[in-house]
Every structure is written in C-alpha cells, then in structure tokens.
Simulated assay, not measured.
Amino acid sequence: MFGLFGKSIPVKVRSYSESRKHGVAAKDLKELLKKACKALQVPHSGAHVCLYSDGTKVTEEFFLTLPDHTELVLLSREQTWSGVVCDIGQLLKTDQHADGLIEAAKGLLSGERSPKRRKILTDLLQSLEDRSELESREEDEEWFRGVDARFKTKSGYMKFNCESRIRGYMKEVDDATKTIQKAKVRAEFLKTSKCLAEMLKTARYNGCYFDRTEKEPDRLCTKEGWFTCQGSFDQDVCQSLHSINPYGSRESRIIFSTWNLDHRIEKKRTIIPTLLEVLQNHRTTDVNLTYFYRLLFTRENLKLVHIVCHKKGAHNLLCDTKKIFRKASNTDKGNPKNKGKKRRLM
C-alpha cells in the first residue's frame, strides 16, 4: 500500500545508535518525523530520515512511494547514514568482548531480509566466530562436536580426514581387481596393488596435506589453517579466489568436507584403466609404479578445489607413455630373456 489519497504508510524506524525498530504509520513525511522523534526521543529540529539499506535521504515525494514496512533510520541534524555498512562499522568500533560482538551481529542479522546485507552480516559473523588459534578439544569443544572422542587436537583430526580420502583412492584401486577376468592378469594386478599400498603406508597416507602443524612444503594450508582453492583441473588458479579455514569453526570444518582433492589425470577414467591395460601384457616389475603412485596419491596430480570449481566432466588428459614403464637397468639389458622384448602399451 502506498501513501496516496491520504492513506497512512506503515514503516519501521530505528535510531542511529540502536538496532531496535519501531513501527510507525504516517500520511506524510511531516507526520512521520513528528511520531518517530517522539518514539525515539530524537530532537525534532533538523531531524531527517534515510533508507536503512543504502542511506538514500527520504523526501516528501519519495516517502509517498515507499512500500509498506520499509526500514528507515531517524537521524539528528549532524548525523549521516551510508547504509548497512554503518551498522557493521559501529559494531566493530565497540569495545565488546568477542562473544558480545557475535551476539550483536546475530541481532543485526535477525529479521534481515536483504540478501546482500544477509551475506555481509553472515560473513562478518563467521569471521567473529573464528577460533582457529585454538587447537585442543578442551579449548574448543564446539569444534569437536560430532568428532570421535579419540581425536584430541584439530590437526590430528584434519590429518585423519586427509588420510581417509587417500585410503578411499587405494580402495578404488583394489576394487578394480573384481573386473579382471584372466587369472594371470589378476595376480599381477594384486601384486601391483600391494606394492602401491606399501608405498602409501610408508608415506603415512599423505595426511600431512591437511595438517597445519606439518612443514610448509608438505601441507596444503597456512600455519593458521587457511586453505586456498587451486582452481579446476584445466586452470592454473581459482578465478573466484575461494578460501576457507576449517580450523576456525565447526561449520567451516563441515563445509570443508565438500571440497575435493581432484585428480587432474582422472583416477577412474584414465589412471586405473591404463594400469589394467599395461598389466595385460607386462609384469608388475616392468611398470613404473612410482609414476602411478604419484598420479593416484600425491599433489603432483591432485588439486584441492572448492566444489564449485570441481568439473565432473571428462578431463581428457592421458598418462605419459614415456613414464609408464621402468627404465631398463644394465642388468635388464644384459639378460637374454629381455632381448627383443617390446615395452609398449597394448
């Protein structure tokens, strides 16, 4: 309903320093200022109102076009308002304890309808709730809610989280055995799988990637726990600059579980099928298992990506045929059994 033909317009008005809103109905701007100044105890002389959303000053003509329940800010002569950023600015200027700031931010967010302002306030609230400097379960019990009691530190759990993902890749290699019909090939593939498992076990399943206590070359995050999206498989960097700190809050930890360790050269479509094809006509000892290990389980072929940057379509990248087989040693070359043997991918 609009303020035409003498009808009153219901609006919500708050003062510069308070977030509590008052419902006021008025036929024109003059009546609105009179009622609002009385309700909010603001001097009438020089008082004016602005849109809460962006600070636009409300004139008599503009007031008559306002939709019902528009949010306004009542200001005294010397006060100005630039929109929701003023609320955030005032909030950050206060000397409140972190818990007080969080409650204040939640108060601003409560009942907020504008998607853009909700996004700003949500991001601010997430920043205020960051507790990444804390490490143990005793220090930050909320972070560990839903996490098995055997984990006592955030780094320990994050390391386990990464190990679990890498173990899952190893399981997919093992499961490929079920697709092999020839007993001889299946036996060779089992040997290959066992060797890869031993290599992975020696590397402790590369859990260091998510552990912020590890050295910088080994971890994928900063020492504070910040991870940055590395972009989709066909890009050098993330165009959206996605980043997250799962050490900061329980919510961030859960959201991080949706990020992917994506294989550039694909695991199911390319790496495992290539390994199976090689073993059709070659032995495990002929294969460069180190190369396949790096493709399956290490940062040489893995990229940490935000779910938005994870392209699920075919990557169309192939294994390097020059690296698939082991280089023949002098002993191999002198062995009569190896003379004339072609090492090629069938």
Rank of each mutant, 00 (worst) to 15 (best):
Ala105Phe: 04
Lys333Glu: 10
Thr59Pro: 05
Ala328Asn: 03
Pro115Arg: 07
Ser257Glu: 14
Leu345Ile: 15
His263Ser: 06
Lys35Cys: 03
Gly3Asp: 11
Leu92Asn: 02
Gly248Trp: 09
Ala104Cys: 06
Phe233Ser: 01
Lys339Asp: 11
Ser232Asp: 10
Ser132Lys: 08
Thr284Met: 11
Ala314Lys: 12
Ala47Ser: 15
Leu261Asp: 00
Lys106Asn: 03
Asp28Tyr: 08
Trp259Glu: 12
Pro246Val: 06
Ser193Trp: 03
Arg250Glu: 13
Val85Ile: 13
Val24Ala: 01
Val11Glu: 06
Ile272Asn: 04
Leu261Lys: 04
Ser240Cys: 03
Leu121Asn: 04
Leu302Trp: 06
Arg264Val: 15
Pro217Cys: 11
Leu196Lys: 02
Lys215Trp: 01
His44Gly: 03
Ile180Thr: 06
Lys106Gly: 00
Arg186Lys: 15
Ser45Leu: 14
Ala183Met: 11
Lys342Cys: 07
Ala176Ser: 15
Lys201Arg: 12
Glu71His: 14
Asp286Leu: 07
Phe256Ile: 10
Met170Ile: 01
Ser136Cys: 02
Tyr205Lys: 02
Glu31Ala: 09
Lys12Pro: 02
Cys319Tyr: 08
Lys201Thr: 14
Arg219Trp: 09
Gly313Val: 07
Asp99Trp: 12
Gly231Leu: 06
Gly6Arg: 05
Lys339Phe: 13
Arg326Ser: 01
Tyr16Cys: 01
Glu133Asn: 08
Asn281Pro: 00
Ile180Asn: 04
Thr122Gly: 00
Met199Glu: 08
Glu141Leu: 09
Ala197Thr: 13
Gln235Ser: 13
